[in-house]
Measured scan of single mutants.
Amino acid sequence: NKFNKEQQWATYEILNLPNLNEEQRKAFIDSLKDDPSQSANLLAEAKKLNDAQA
């Protein structure tokens, strides 16, 4: 299913963002699990935070 693929991709991407700390990473991944339909939005937020902390 589409959300499952998006969720897996977003999880992979978030795990590989270098500037997030473990707590932030875990929070994003927990949110992905809670609502896979928000995968794209959550990934965008994670990338923004990652860039802000660069």
Rank of each mutant, 00 (worst) to 15 (best):
N1D: 15
N1Y: 01
N1I: 05
N1E: 09
N1F: 01
K2L: 10
K2F: 12
K2H: 15
F3Y: 10
F3V: 12
F3T: 05
F3P: 15
F3Q: 06
F3L: 13
N4S: 07
N4V: 06
N4M: 05
N4Q: 11
N4K: 03
N4I: 06
K5E: 15
K5F: 04
K5V: 06
K5L: 03
E6I: 07
E6D: 09
E6P: 03
E6F: 09
E6M: 04
Q7T: 08
Q7V: 13
Q7M: 14
Q7L: 15
Q8R: 07
Q8Y: 10
W9N: 10
W9E: 15
W9A: 15
W9F: 14
W9L: 14
W9I: 15
W9P: 03
A10E: 03
A10N: 03
A10L: 05
A10R: 03
A10W: 05
A10S: 04
A10Q: 04
T11R: 07
T11I: 15
T11N: 06
T11P: 02
Y12L: 13
Y12T: 14
E13S: 06
E13W: 07
E13F: 07
E13A: 08
E13N: 06
E13L: 06
I14K: 01
I14H: 01
I14W: 02
I14E: 01
I14A: 01
I14N: 01
L15V: 06
L15S: 12
N16M: 09
N16G: 10
N16K: 12
N16A: 14
N16D: 07
L17V: 00
L17K: 00
L17P: 00
L17Q: 02
L17D: 00
L17W: 02
P18I: 05
P18L: 06
P18Y: 05
N19S: 07
N19R: 03
N19Y: 15
N19G: 05
N19K: 03
L20G: 00
L20H: 00
L20I: 06
L20R: 00
N21F: 10
N21E: 08
N21D: 12
N21W: 06
N21M: 03
E22W: 12
E22T: 09
E22I: 07
E23R: 09
E23A: 13
E23K: 11
E23T: 07
E23F: 11
E23H: 10
E23V: 12
Q24S: 02
Q24D: 05
Q24M: 04
Q24A: 02
R25K: 15
R25G: 02
K26F: 09
K26N: 09
K26V: 07
K26W: 10
K26S: 09
A27E: 12
A27K: 12
A27T: 11
A27W: 15
A27D: 08
A27H: 14
F28W: 02
F28L: 05
F28N: 00
F28I: 05
F28R: 00
I29K: 03
I29W: 04
I29A: 04
I29H: 03
I29T: 06
I29M: 10
I29G: 02
D30I: 05
D30S: 12
D30E: 12
S31Q: 15
S31T: 11
S31W: 12
S31A: 13
S31L: 12
S31V: 11
S31R: 09
L32P: 00
L32F: 03
L32W: 02
L32N: 01
L32R: 00
L32K: 00
K33D: 07
K33F: 15
K33M: 14
K33E: 14
K33A: 14
D34Q: 13
D34M: 14
D34I: 04
D34W: 11
D34Y: 10
D34H: 11
D34K: 11
D34N: 09
D35F: 14
D35G: 03
D35I: 04
D35Q: 09
P36M: 05
P36W: 07
P36D: 03
S37I: 05
S37M: 08
S37T: 09
S37N: 06
Q38L: 11
Q38E: 10
Q38I: 08
Q38G: 07
Q38F: 05
Q38W: 04
Q38Y: 04
S39D: 04
S39K: 04
S39T: 12
S39H: 15
A40N: 10
A40E: 11
A40K: 14
N41A: 11
N41W: 13
N41Q: 11
N41F: 15
N41K: 14
L42W: 08
L42M: 12
L42G: 01
L43P: 00
L43D: 00
L43W: 05
L43A: 07
L43E: 02
L43H: 03
L43M: 07
A44Q: 10
A44H: 09
A44M: 15
A44L: 12
E45Y: 08
E45Q: 12
E45G: 03
A46N: 00
A46P: 00
A46E: 01
A46K: 00
K47Q: 09
K47S: 07
K47T: 04
K48N: 10
K48Q: 08
K48V: 09
K48W: 05
L49W: 05
L49K: 05
N50I: 01
N50W: 01
N50D: 07
D51P: 01
D51L: 12
D51A: 14
D51I: 10
D51S: 11
D51H: 11
A52S: 13
A52H: 10
A52N: 12
Q53V: 09
Q53I: 11
Q53P: 03
Q53K: 03
A54W: 09
A54E: 12
